[in-house]
Design a binder for these strands. Structure first.
Lengths: 347, 347
DNA sequence: TTGTAAGCGTTATCAG
DNA sequence: CTGATAACGCTTACAA
C-alpha cells in the first residue's frame, strides 16, 4: 500500500516497465504482446502474465503514430434518425467491432456543405477507411479526393456515386422500382403516381427508371405530371402529395412512393379524405420500415436489408484494409424483395 | 511537377517542414498553429499561410500521444435499431461534433458480457469520456471502475444506475408512469395491465412505481397478476401479452405498456381477436415512436425527448471535459409529456 | 530467438 | 516573443 500523498496521476505501465521487471528488452515485450512468430512460448507467457498482473494497457496513440494507422473507420450518413439508417449502422458496428475497428460517425444533415466538413473531420482523425451515403444535394466527389489520394479506401452504400476505385453497395433499385410498379399494374392500376426523391441520387432516379420500364411493358405512356420529384420524402412530403392528388381532376389509381414514411403519411391523409385504399388507390412504399406493418391497411413495400447492407459494407472495407490484395470489386448488389400486403391487393 | 517514379507514399508535411520553409523553429510553428497568446500576429499569419499552402495536416496521433487526450467520446448503448436510440445518437453526434469531439459507438446487444467488452474497448481507445445506457442484464458497475479510476468521466442516460461522481440524464419515469396510469384511470379503467421490462432497470421499475402510485390514488389495490415484467418489450412481447389477455377470465380494461413497440404489437393482436380499442381496452404506450401515430387508433403515449437527451448528455460531458471546474451535477431530469390520442380516450 | 536504437510528429518546459 | 530540447510509448530494421 502506498499513499498517493502528492495526488500525482498514477503512472501508466509501459512496455519498458514490463521489460525491466522481466529483465528483457522492450522490443521483446512488444513482440510478445502481439504474438510475433519469432518468440519463445515461455517468454511470451511470462510477458503476458506480467502485463496482466501489472495492469498494462497498450498506448494506442504511440502505436498509431508508429504504424500510421488508426484502426478506425469513418461513417458519413445523411441522417441518423430513420429505422433504415439505424439498422445499417448497427450492422456496420457489429462487423467493425469484431474485426478490431472502431466506428466514428458523422451526419451530413442532408447538406453537401456539411458533408464536406465531415470528410475533413474524418481526414483529420486519420481514419483508415470511410463508408458514405451521400447527402441530398451532394453535387460532386471532389471532397473525397483528398482521402483517395492518400489511398484511404472509400465504400459508398445506398446513395452512391460511381467512382473508379471505390466499391458501391446497393440493391437493384431499378428492378425494385420495376417490381413495385409492375405489381400495381398487375392489380389493374392504370394511372400510377410516383413519389420520388432527388433525382440526382441514384436510388431515386433508378426507381423512377424502373417505374417507367414497367409502364412501357404494359404499354402505358409515361406521364411526367404523375411524378412528384425532388421531395424530401418526409411526412410532410407525403401529406403534400395527398393534397395534390385530392385536387386532381383525374385522380391516380395507384401510388408508388420511394419510401415508407411518405407513403404512410400520404395514405393517412387520403384516408381522412374518404379515399379507400386499396380500392380507390393502391399504394406501394419502399424500405419495409416498421410503420409499414402498422398502418391500416398494411403497406406493400420493398424490403431493403439495412443490417445486411451495413455488414457487407463494413466487411468489404475491413477486407480491403486487412489485405492489400483484395479484389477491386466495383459494385455489390444485395437482394431486395417486394413484400405484398393489403395496401395494394384488390380481390 | 514531379513524377513519382518510385511510388513512394508522398511524404507528409510536418511542422518541421513549415519551420524550415519559414526559417523559424518547429516550436513556434506549433504555437502559431493553435494561436498561442505569446506569438506575434505577423508570424502567426505567415505560419498559417505556409501551412495551408503546403497542405499541412496535423498529426493527431502525435498530438494525442503528447497531450494524453484523444478528443474522442465513447457511447455504449444496448441496441442501435430503435427510433428512440437513433435520435439520441443523432443529438450526441451533433453536439460532440460542434465541440470538436469524435463519437465512437458500441452496442452491448443488451448483454452484460458484451457491455464489459465494450467498456474494455473504449478504455483501450483512450476515450476522454463515456456515455452509457445500460444493457438489459447489467448487474453491477464494477466494469466502469477502471475508467473512473483514471478520472475519465461517465454520463449515464436513459437506463442509468446511481453512481457517486457520475451524472445521470433521465426523465421522471415515475411521474411518467403515474401520468399514463392516472390518465387511464380517469378514463374509467378499473383493471389496468402493465407491460414492464426488466425491473432492475430504473426506467422500468420507476414506471411500475408510478403505476402503483396512480392506482393507490384511485384506491385500487395493486394486483401483481396484472403486471407482466422482464419482457424485452419487443413485438413478440406485445403479441405474447395479448395472447395472455385473451385467455384471461376477467380481462383488463386498460393497458399501460412501457414502450410503443410492444403496445402497438399488442393492440394489433387484440384487434385481430375482435377487441375494440379503446372501448373494450384502452391502451397507453411509451416513447412517442413514429408508429404510435400510424396505428389505428392512434396510440396515447409518453413523449420521450431522445434528441434532446442526446444533446444534453453530450453537452454535459463536453463541459466536464473542457473545464475541470464544472459542477458535480448528480442528475438531470428532462421534461416528458403525455400525448393523449384515440387509443385511450372514451367519449 | 532476442537486443539495440532510431525514429514517428507533437508539445511542454525552460532558457534566452 | 522565440528557440532548443526532451519526452510521449511504441515498432521495426538491423545486428547479434
Amino acid at each position: 500500500m502506498y499513499t498517493d500523498q502528492k495526488m500525482t496521476p498514477p503512472k501508466e505501465i509501459t512496455i519498458y516497465d514490463i521489460a525491466k521487471a522481466l529483465n528483457i528488452s522492450p522490443a521483446t515485450v512488444s513482440r510478445g504482446l502481439k504474438d510475433h512468430p519469432a518468440i519463445r512460448k515461455g517468454t511470451k507467457k511470462k510477458i503476458l502474465d506480467a502485463a496482466s498482473k501489472m495492469g498494462y494497457q497498450q498506448n494506442t496513440f504511440a502505436s498509431n503514430l508508429r504504424r500510421k494507422r488508426s484502426n478506425t473507420i469513418g461513417v458519413i450518413i445523411p441522417r441518423l434518425n430513420s429505422y433504415f439508417m439505424s439498422t445499417v449502422i448497427s450492422g456496420m458496428e457489429k462487423v467493425a467491432n469484431q474485426s478490431g475497428y472502431n466506428l466514428i460517425i458523422s451526419q451530413s444533415q442532408e447538406s453537401f456543405k456539411k458533408e464536406i466538413i465531415s470528410v475533413k473531420t474524418m481526414y483529420d482523425s486519420r481514419i483508415d477507411g470511410l463508408m458514405v451515403s451521400l447527402a441530398y444535394d451532394t453535387a460532386d466527389t471532389e471532397h473525397f479526393e483528398v482521402l483517395l489520394k492518400k489511398r484511404i479506401p472509400i465504400i459508398f452504400f445506398d446513395r452512391v456515386i460511381d467512382h473508379p476505385g471505390c466499391t458501391s453497395i446497393v440493391i437493384d433499385n431499378r428492378q425494385a422500382g420495376y417490381d413495385a410498379t409492375h405489381h400495381l399494374l398487375s392489380q389493374g392500376c392504370k394511372r400510377i403516381m410516383h413519389l420520388a426523391g432527388n433525382l440526382s441520387r441514384n436510388v431515386y432516379s433508378d426507381r423512377l427508371e424502373g417505374y417507367k420500364m414497367a409502364l412501357a411493358k404494359f404499354n402505358i405512356p409515361f406521364d411526367p405530371s404523375l411524378v412528384i420529384s425532388n421531395s424530401l420524402l418526409s411526412e410532410q412530403g407525403g401529406v403534400d402529395a395527398a393534397q395534390e392528388i385530392l385536387t386532381m381532376h383525374e385522380k391516380p389509381d395507384g401510388i408508388f412512393a420511394s419510401n415508407d414514411t411518405s407513403a404512410v403519411a400520404c395514405m393517412r391523409q387520403l384516408k381522412l379524405a374518404g379515399i379507400k385504399i386499396p380500392h380507390d388507390i393502391a399504394v406501394v412504399g419502399f424500405n419495409n420500415d416498421p410503420i409499414s406493418k402498422v398502418i391500416d391497411p398494411n403497406l406493400t413495400t420493398v424490403n431493403y436489408p439495412g443490417q445486411e447492407m451495413g455488414e457487407v459494407a463494413a466487411a468489404t472495407l475491413v477486407n480491403k484494409l486487412d489485405q492489400s490484395n483484395s479484389p477491386g470489386v466495383n459494385t455489390i448488389v444485395l437482394r431486395h424483395e417486394l413484400i405484398i400486403r393489403e395496401s395494394s391487393t384488390r380481390k
